[in-house]
Design a protein around this nucleic acid. Structure first.
Lengths: 215, 215
DNA sequence: ATATAATTCAAACATATGTTTAAATCAAGT
DNA sequence: ACTTGATTTAAACATATGTTTGAATTATAT
């Protein structure tokens, strides 16, 4: 079927160009040229450039969310009613991202950037409010709360956000300047996961922060 | 002096519009219209739209970096040769950001987004490699390493990056959907700082993560 | 008051953009 | 072979974009 051939070719090329040049700096003409298809063909299949962006993001995010959900299912089943291990929950949440990062390489970088940019754009694409994604988020937050009952729900949510921020830090690969004495050696995926899990586990297990307003 | 009047007016309006509509979705015609100045006046003062973006970012980032540097100077002086307290170092790094967040409000949001977007754009603006900023970064990393000598320099750098990611999480204010049962109550600045400091302190104090490569 | 420089302005420039049109080509079923 | 619907194509469309021009205006200093 030529149909899906053209569609996936457009998505693949667009994703690559977005990652290289940036989303707005990439025109649909560049995309169709490198993909070897006609400009009207893109509109025929997707309807608009925005729809292409949307599809690129969801295509990557969907399997991540499914993996996250599946992992949490397994963990909950294994722990049989009792709150599961914190580390297991953190790994379940983080590994799908890092794994995708490993498979898709720098393309993931643009996904994260796209999400930031998309949030920027008057929220025309409400990907971040995607119900499937939010359902998974809420499940994880609930589980974390059950593991850490002494923390207020607000504090659990903050720590959850810090976790996402840390993951972004990994995937965006904030650059250090070439002349900086501090560099990350080339580490394998497992090492990076260990780094972040160690850091986050300690962070989540920290005692409740003092509240300035009460007393 | 009219000069600085027009310049700052352009910067103020541009910053506001970028924050509302996004950087690429905002044209210089919108900017000059709302600022009440002529389109050529913008080019006269700044030379290009890119230069405006650059100036908006540096204008906000400069005082933050200066505060960070000043705080670290004070801490080092007070500790007199010995490694300073971890919490003091973390507060010195984070408070200037949060404080600016308090003063500039949602405008800060766009600064963070701008930095992500700018990094996107073929790195024409190399703000993230700004020497002043990197010097401060390196000083903080060195100080953290001296406090945590048992950690490899690579692990210190990772935790430093996780800290930046957590700060981004605060400033970008990752939205939760309106119907989510999990929300952050309206908390004051001090509470948020306490949340993140508690989290980060525990994370930095975590033992070294196990390395998968050496046995 | 006059000369010089800085600034503002309306208008035009050049072009890159996302999108649409309508004809041509291809695929599949009868 | 013929018909129908899906797909691809070249070309045109409409317009929004950042930028530049050159004259007009304003500020500054002699």
């Amino acid at each position: 079927m030529k149909n899906s051939d053209t569609k996936t070719k457009i998505l693949d090329v667009a994703e690559k160009l977005f990652a290289e040049t940036g989303i707005h700096a990439t025109s649909i003409r560049q995309i169709v040229k490198e993909a070897g298809v006609n400009v009207a063909s893109l509109h025929y299949h997707f309807g608009s450039k925005e729809a292409v962006i949307h599809e690129i993001i969801t295509r990557r995010l969907r399997p991540i969310n499914e993996a996250k959900e599946k992992h949490l299912d397994e963990i909950e089943e294994a722990s049989a009613g009792k709150p599961p291990e914190l580390e297991a929950v953190l790994r379940a949440f983080i590994e799908p991202h890092i794994h995708m990062h490993k498979v898709a390489g720098d393309k993931v970088k643009i996904i994260m950037k796209l999400m930031v940019q998309v949030e920027d754009e008057a929220e025309k694409l409400k990907l971040l409010h995607d119900p499937a994604m939010m359902t998974v988020f809420n499940r994880y937050i609930s589980t974390l709360q059950s593991i850490l009952p002494h923390l207020s729900s607000s504090e659990v949510l903050w720590r959850f956000k810090f976790m996402i921020g840390s993951m972004h830090a990994i995937m965006l690969q904030h650059p250090m300047p070439p002349d900086s004495p501090f560099k990350n050696e080339k580490e394998n995926t497992e090492d990076i996961i260990n780094h972040v899990i160690t850091f986050l586990k300690a962070g989540f297990l920290a005692p409740a922060s003092t509240n300035s307003s009460v007393e």
